[in-house]
Simulated assay, not measured.
Amino acid sequence: MKTSVAALSCLILAAQAAVEHLMLNLKNEQHSMSQGGFHRPTDCCFSYTLRKIRCVFMKDYVETTTACSQTAVIFITKRGQQVCANPKDEQVQKCMLHLKLRSVIKDLRTLSLEKGYLESAPSPLSLLP
């Protein structure tokens, strides 16, 4: 009985060490992703959409890393789909600017509400074109 308790204790310690090792690897992977050093093939675009980008359907975007074979912008639609677009296209640049501006306004509004600066002010999103 003492042997099985000792073996069980060792097994639990080994499992705990394995979980800690996995968590450490996950943190390192996230850090390297934020530094632009790590990318998955799904983070790259091999062709651009032929359709016109309609910014009204987009909720966010990411730019591909320099590790990809070609530069691209990956738009995330409100339905969660990803659309690859040419970053040199004027419509793509306008949409990126619009989404960035919308994000900044939203952040400012949230910060202002937290600080109590805006209590009955109109929505800054109504200022967007």
Rank of each mutant, 00 (worst) to 15 (best):
L99G: 04
R51L: 15
H31W: 09
Q16S: 07
Y117N: 01
T71N: 00
G37H: 04
V5N: 09
L26C: 01
V83N: 08
C68F: 08
L97R: 05
Q35R: 08
I74D: 01
R54Y: 04
A85N: 07
K27A: 05
N28A: 03
A121L: 13
L11F: 15
A72N: 14
V5M: 09
K88F: 05
T71G: 00
Q30F: 03
K115A: 06
M23F: 04
L97K: 10
L113D: 02
L111F: 12
G116T: 05
C95H: 11
K78E: 01
F38S: 03
V83A: 04
T3E: 09
K100W: 14
V19M: 03
M58L: 15
K106D: 09
L128K: 05
F57E: 09
Q30H: 12
N25G: 00
Y61N: 01
I12A: 08
V5A: 05
F38D: 02
D89K: 07
Q35S: 01
C84P: 13
K106M: 13
L11W: 11
C10S: 10
K2E: 07
F57Y: 14
M58A: 11
A85T: 02
A121I: 13
S126C: 08
C95Q: 09
S103P: 06
T42P: 01
S103V: 05
R54H: 12
P41T: 04
K27H: 12
F75A: 11
K59V: 01
K88S: 08
V56L: 11
R54S: 14
H31T: 14
A72Y: 05
L8C: 13
R40A: 02
H39Q: 15
I12H: 11
K115Q: 04
V92G: 04
F75K: 09
I74P: 00
R51T: 07
K2V: 13
C68K: 06
T3P: 07
R51H: 08
A15V: 10
L118Y: 15
M33I: 03
V104N: 15
V19S: 13
C95T: 12
V5Y: 13
R54M: 05
V5E: 15
C10D: 11
S47A: 09
A72M: 10
E29L: 02
L24K: 14
L125M: 11
I105E: 11
C10V: 12
Q93R: 04
G80T: 01
A15M: 10
E29K: 03
K106V: 07
E63M: 10
Q82S: 06
S126K: 10
S34R: 10
K27I: 14
T42A: 04
I12Q: 06
A85G: 13
A6P: 02
A6L: 05
H39Y: 10
K52A: 06
R109F: 14
Y117T: 03
H31Q: 11
Q70E: 03
E29D: 02
K27T: 05
A15H: 09
T71W: 01
Y48V: 06
Q93M: 06
R109M: 13
L8M: 13
F38P: 00
H98Q: 07
S112V: 11
A7D: 03
E90A: 08
Q82E: 06
S34N: 05
A72F: 10
T49Y: 15
I12K: 10
K115D: 03
E29Y: 03
D60I: 01
V62W: 12
